[in-house]
Design a protein around this nucleic acid. Structure first.
Length: 566
RNA sequence: GCGUUCAUAGCUCAGCUGGAUAGAGCAUCGGUUUGCGGUACCGAAGGUCUCAGGUUCGAAUCCUGAUGGACGUACCA
């Protein structure tokens, strides 16, 4: 249900019939319940242009607003605000209409786009660490969300599988032999360290490593095979993490750095042809307007850099994949890099004028002291360890509850633990750094996944207890039901805002509002207690059921599971 | 040095395409129950939105400057 745009149409019509000229009508949420459900604040601006009294314009406008359908009443308030109340009957009718809709009333976007979402991007030389968490789950949510709204989404996992370090790694892999390597590769971090030690202590080995770098790049079969088996093993580690996280990334989504390698020479050629690059200190550079520091696209020794690869990737995505919008879910610290690369790509015509290029930046995960999140001895925390710990902690916190079998407990702990990690991350406005806290994450209180999952389980419990067919329409009986129904219908507006701004946290705060409102409703309006009219009971059951569906769908888009019993 | 970004309750965070008395959660204090899952619900208290100017009928939100922090800044990604 696109409530805001419908209201906007009604107001536009009213403006027309009142003969008032105006541009886009922007409807905002009411700032307070006393002010209704929505408000239109545009009259004050109009008053200035028309040089008229805003109150008069508002009063005049209000008389032309159609209040026979979705709007129950409108009021002029303050200097010229127009407050809008939705009609109970309309809410009831619309909410009833989506009761059996598996999209819970969410339609599709008017103009579907082809969207490339670039996320996760682990480095094959190392184990995934907490730094990859945000990119992976924010990106995955964005992809799922855009897809749900009807866009054609292409996921791209731009893995780091190319560069000098791989010479060392495969030389070491070869030295270890097949068996030793399989066992050692279980811990990539350790493997990397061991290889580095070997590299530093043995000049012969170091020479071989350097030689292997050249060999991979020139397509030597033996080295490429070694390299391929190393990448396969490393990617296997990532897939283990994706699996635990419930992230929808497969090998088909992988477009590695190596994939772009054959295209890099052409990138430089294009830049030269367009006279965008010049040689400075032996390196091929692009000097952008107003900057004295260049973007280097080719090193003095002929090697390419990450800007070059990103340009090749941009061109591929725009021209081969034919993307309308390309989203890079990458750490905010790389903002400058993307700004530069985007500018160059547009100037060089590698990407069409109307392709939207977006850097979906996010902040860093911090510990309690506000420092980057590390292990006690200052090392990087492996993502897989963090996830396993979340499950262990979740188990502790739910153990004292109702008796569960060991299997059930394990399953619940997994859903709860992983959900908590994801929700905690997604519920923070993505651009700010955030402080990681187990306690807050695994709390049942406040804006947490457990509060949502608990509410969901409670509703399931009610539905189980009723154990009959639920039928009949939703009727709005009081203020709490009005607000609940309104929130349920606002789901689509919420999702489209989240999709446009690429802000998963607008979904979490919506869900939190929804659940809070449900709790209020439920506290005040008994559902299964005696003495309640059948019609009312059915309506309340329907509201509860619909709330559960929206919670489930909302969490589903965030990649978080629900369970019927906690 | 230059650039980017941030500063909101004791703590963790919303709100930022300018709108009415700046909102949540935690913690603190108080209340609700013969309970449809009380890990719930209701309430109180808590603020010079870092500071100083400016634009405006109206600024946490936009602009300028200051202060403090984070990050980036020529051949890593």
């Amino acid at each position: 249900m696109k409530i805001k745009s419908q209201l906007s149409n009604i107001i536009s019509d009213a403006l027309k019939s009142a003969n008032i000229e105006s541009d886009d009508v922007v409807i905002s949420d009411a700032t307070k319940p006393e002010f209704g459900d929505y408000q239109f604040n545009g009259v004050m601006k109009l008053a200035k242009v028309l040089k008229q009294n805003p109150r008069e314009i508002a009063t005049n406008l209000v008389e032309h607003i159609d209040t026979t359908g979705m709007i129950a009443k409108v009021e002029v308030a303050g200097p010229g605000f127009i407050n809008i109340w939705l009609s109970d009957e309309w809410l009831a009718k619309e909410a009833t209409a989506i009761l059996n809709d598996d999209r819970v009333g969410v339609g599709y976007v008017e103009n579907p786009q082809k969207v490339v979402v670039d996320y996760s991007g682990p480095n094959m030389a190392k184990q995934m660490h907490v730094g990859h968490l945000r990119s992976t789950i924010i990106g995955d949510t964005l992809a799922t969300l855009l897809e749900f709204l009807g866009n054609d989404v292409i996921r791209q996992n731009h893995i780091g599988d190319w560069g000098t370090q791989f010479g060392m790694l495969i030389a070491y892999l070869e030295e270890q032999g097949a068996d030793g390597a399989t066992t050692e590769l279980k811990d990539l971090e350790q493997f990397y360290k061991d290889a580095k030690v070997r590299f530093d202590e043995s000049p012969e080995f170091a020479d071989k490593a350097r030689e292997y770098v050249v060999k991979i790049q020139s397509g030597d079969e033996h080295c490429l095979n070694l390299w391929q088996s190393f990448i396969d093993a490393s990617l296997g580690h990532c897939e283990e993490v994706y699996d635990k996280l419930g992230v929808n990334l497969t090998r088909d989504d992988v477009r590695a750095e190596s994939f772009y390698n054959p295209k890099l020479a052409d990138v430089i050629k294009t830049l030269k042809e367009k006279n965008l690059s010049t040689v400075s200190d032996g390196a091929e550079c692009v000097f952008l307007d107003g900057s004295e520091v260049p973007v280097i696209v080719q090193k003095g020794d002929g090697g390419y850099l990450y800007a070059t690869t990103d340009l090749a990737a941009l061109e591929y995505r725009a021209k081969e994949l034919k993307a309308d919008r390309i989203c890079y879910v990458v750490d905010a610290r790389q903002g400058q890099h993307f700004k530069q690369v985007f500018t160059i790509a547009k100037q060089a015509g590698m990407v069409g004028e109307n392709v939207a290029l977006e850097h979906i930046g996010f902040g860093t995960m911090m510990d309690k002291g506000g420092k980057p999140f590390k292990t006690r001895d200052g090392g990087v925390i492996k993502l897989i360890d963090l996830l396993d710990e979340a499950v262990v902690k979740a188990k502790e916190s739910i153990k004292e509850r109702d008796a569960h079998s060991e299997d059930e407990l394990e399953n619940i702990a997994t859903v709860v633990g992983i959900g908590a990690v994801k929700y905690a991350d997604l519920s923070i406005s993505r651009e700010s750094n955030y402080i990681f806290s187990w306690d807050k994450m695994l709390s049942f209180e406040g804006n947490t996944s457990l509060y949502m999952q608990y509410a969901y389980a409670r509703i399931q419990s009610i539905l189980r207890k009723y154990d009959g067919e639920i039928q009949g329409d939703i009727i709005i009986g009081d203020e709490t039901e009005h607000r609940l129904a309104h929130l349920l219908l606002k789901f689509e507006d919420t999702l489209s805002k989240a999709a446009t701004d690429a802000t998963p946290h607008t979904i979490t705060s919506y869900l939190y509002d929804l659940v809070t409102q449900f709790m209020k409703f439920y506290e005040l309006n008994p559902i299964l207690k005696g003495g309640i009219e059948e019609e009312v009971k059915m309506s309340r059951l329907q509201l509860a059921k619909l709330t559960a569906s929206v919670i489930k769908k909302g969490l589903d888009i965030l990649g978080i599971k629900v369970i019927d019993k906690i």
